[in-house]
């Protein structure tokens, strides 16, 4: 499974990834280019690309779109001032043809910070309800404490696995409810 970690700078993409991989998060510097990490979860190999979110780097995101199964959009839930920016970058991203069909996990990061935006506020600030082209979820997490990370990834893997599975067997004429899906990678 190929997963792309994107979002504005300072969102916590690299920190989430390192936390998922049980690495030290104390000395993470802003990402100058990109990181690649391979994780094994639920029997799947995840190839995760974490690309820096600095404005200068955003035009390069498109170099990573090819054959992406899922996009993890990381949001700094305490960064109210840049939610507009965050919304327009995400919308631009989802228009990209090469990402059509990719599942979207919005990680509402930094929920450990008091006063960070609620899931509903983030949903509305990013205007997620207008997205009908991708299956999405907003999931709360804290890269600092690790809370919510595994759960979010589990949802994502289930989603993607379900989709890959179905599309391999039959034409996916209808979407399915994730809870009702049985993950069965070996068919």
């Amino acid at each position: 499974m190929r997963i792309l970690f994107l979002g504005l700078d300072n969102a916590g993409k690299t920190t989430i990834l390192k936390k998922l991989n049980d690495e030290d998060i104390g000395d993470i510097s802003p990402t100058l280019g990109f990181n690649i990490k391979t994780l094994i979860r639920d029997g799947y190999t995840l190839n995760i690309w974490d690309v820096g979110g600095q404005r200068t780097l955003r035009p390069y995101w498109r170099n990573y779109f090819e054959s992406t199964d899922a996009v993890v959009w990381v949001v700094d839930s305490s960064d109210r001032m840049r939610m507009g920016d965050c919304q327009s970058e995400l919308k631009g991203l989802l228009k990209e043809e090469r990402l059509a069909g990719a599942t979207l996990l919005v990680f509402a990061n930094k929920q450990d910070l008091e006063g960070s935006m609620t899931l509903e506020e983030i949903r509305d600030a990013l205007d997620l309800r207008s997205i009908l082209s991708h299956r999405w979820i907003v999931h709360p997490c804290s890269a600092y404490t690790g809370k919510g990370l595994e759960e979010g990834m589990t949802w994502l893997i289930k989603e993607v696995a379900g989709r890959l599975y179905w599309s391999g067997i039959q034409t996916p004429t209808q979407p399915t409810i994730p809870t009702a899906q049985v993950i069965n990678p070996v068919s």
């Binding site: 509903e120 949903r123 997620l128 997205i131 299956r135 999405w136 979820i137 709360p140 994730p178 809870t179």
Partner: peptide, 10 residues
């Protein structure tokens, strides 16, 4: 929490 129409409420 199903996909394209909702989110879990806190």
């Amino acid at each position: 929490i199903v996909g394209d129409s909702s989110i879990p409420t806190p």
